[in-house]
Design a binder for these strands. Structure first.
Lengths: 266, 266
DNA sequence: GTGCGACACTTTATGCCATAAGGAGTTTTC
DNA sequence: GAAAACTCCTTATGGCATAAAGTGTCGCAC
């Protein structure tokens, strides 16, 4: 988990919002730019994961040392903030609302899901101190605009969007972690499970009586693979995403019909 | 994020399931034990967060060097696995089902929520390669047993429980991160937001026209604090937890009533 | 046209981290 | 009594962010 930068807010925000530096006079020309560094850092994180994102790795791709980056960016945390905001620029802004809010929100959730899978490292940026950049705001504005069509009152709307975000991020994180684990260890999900389950039988021979519901589920095909080419947990996560979205939106519709304790109450 | 151990599965599983080592003969007496180390490590992580969990920190609390721990535990990843499983031992197993599955599942979700807030570091253990320890299995078995009372077919049950887990973890993570950020930086949420929002106004004077829905929400009191003593985001997360649970369980009831595409379909 | 100061970038150093390797000392078994 | 096995320590090694100081380049004031 990467926490937000805690340095000078003025400097951070100026970088995020692209507030131009006044022209500079003396000194050698700048060989790099903040934009270039941010793009390169995103490429590193996309390819090798957040754990592989180091100042050195980014500098190396640009033919510089790690320290050279500090001329452009106050520190690594600020760089991650910039990456996070910049990445959000690629999310769509326009959605078709003619088929109603439910279709639009579903499309939006899918776009967010794919966004997080394209940039799995975004799931490791802490949400506690938001980045407050222009593109992150745009992305949130767009989601909010679609969901506002439900007619839910503002406080309920705020909570509902959080529920959806938690869910999408959580489901995407499972897929991201499965891929990351396979890439980092070089052991496929199948191999890993095969090795573990053999040992599990040795070490817990009374498994079925000790965990009857789990055993029942296994028997019922609750854990059946449907597509052998995709890691089991990734498959499960994809199904969970589709089903979960339906369940949550059904719940939202229920709240709209009968505004009970979950309804427009403050 | 901490990924699962990738060492010898036999050794890891034996430690997790407490398979006894045959008695040892020569050599000095062991001054520590795996249990003691795991307990100490949990204490460190509870107090100072996952980032502060180092072999040195744990060793120091026990009056040893970092390397001394390697006699008991193959490495840090295995230690985290043991911590994760051990912590789950404190989750309740018995729930009252007389008021129906919904009340029981709600109680269970609250217990999981509090568990994660008591041990925020559990949210940073990757779910991709599950730990496969006895207590983690017990915890999952218990959740599954309660939700099975809905009568949902196994595949749908599996997805539903994932939806709930993602949601609870996501909501708890927000609170955990808010607290962690405040503790790590020494800056309260209020101070942080105050500093940032001032700069935001300078840097984005057209905020209201650029993000109309966000501005509307602010005007509607969507972001109003209800309790000034609790950080805003923590408050929001708590409300989101309550409301979100209602929404999701409403969605589950809807799926039970009319098993459509989200229903018992394979 | 010269020199100074600002700047980009590098080298080096500090202090973390996990953990590999080897060594010292203790205890049990033969 | 000696050898083997064991615990724990010291000492690397190579990684990380980043502080501090050094090198060389460039633009402007004089």
């Amino acid at each position: 988990m990467v926490y937000a930068a805690q340095g000078d807010p003025k400097r951070s925000m100026a970088l995020l919002w692209g507030v131009a530096d006044p022209g500079r006079r003396p000194g050698p020309k700048q060989g790099l730019s903040v934009d270039l560094i941010v793009e390169t850092a995103i490429a590193v994180a996309d390819a090798d994961g957040m754990a592989a994102l180091s100042m050195r790795a980014v500098g190396e791709r640009l033919g510089r040392t790690a320290m050279a980056l500090y001329t452009y960016v106050p520190g690594k945390n600020e760089l991650v903030d910039l990456m996070y905001d910049r990445a959000h620029a690629e999310l769509p802004v326009e959605y078709d609302l003619r088929d109603g809010w439910r279709a639009a929100v579903t499309a939006r959730a899918s776009d967010l899901w794919e966004f997080h899978l394209r940039h799995p490292w975004t799931l490791q940026v802490s949400q506690a101190r938001p980045v407050l950049g222009p593109y992150e705001y745009t992305a949130f504005e767009t989601s909010l605009r679609l969901l506002r069509e439900t007619g839910l009152p503002a406080p309920m709307l705020r909570r509902t969007i959080s529920v959806l975000y938690h869910f999408v991020r959580g489901a995407a994180q499972t897929v991201a972690e499965v891929r990351q684990a396979a890439a980092a260890t070089g052991v496929s999900d199948e191999e890993w499970w095969h090795a573990r389950s053999a040992v599990l039988e040795e070490v817990a021979p009374d498994f079925a009586s000790r965990y009857p519901t789990l055993a029942w589920m296994e028997g019922e095909g609750g854990f059946r693979m449907e597509d052998e080419t995709v890691p089991y947990l990734e498959q499960e996560a994809r199904e969970t995403f589709t089903t979960g979205l339906t369940v949550i939106l059904d719940g939202v519709e229920a709240a709209l019909r009968e505004p009970g304790p979950a309804g427009p109450a403050q």
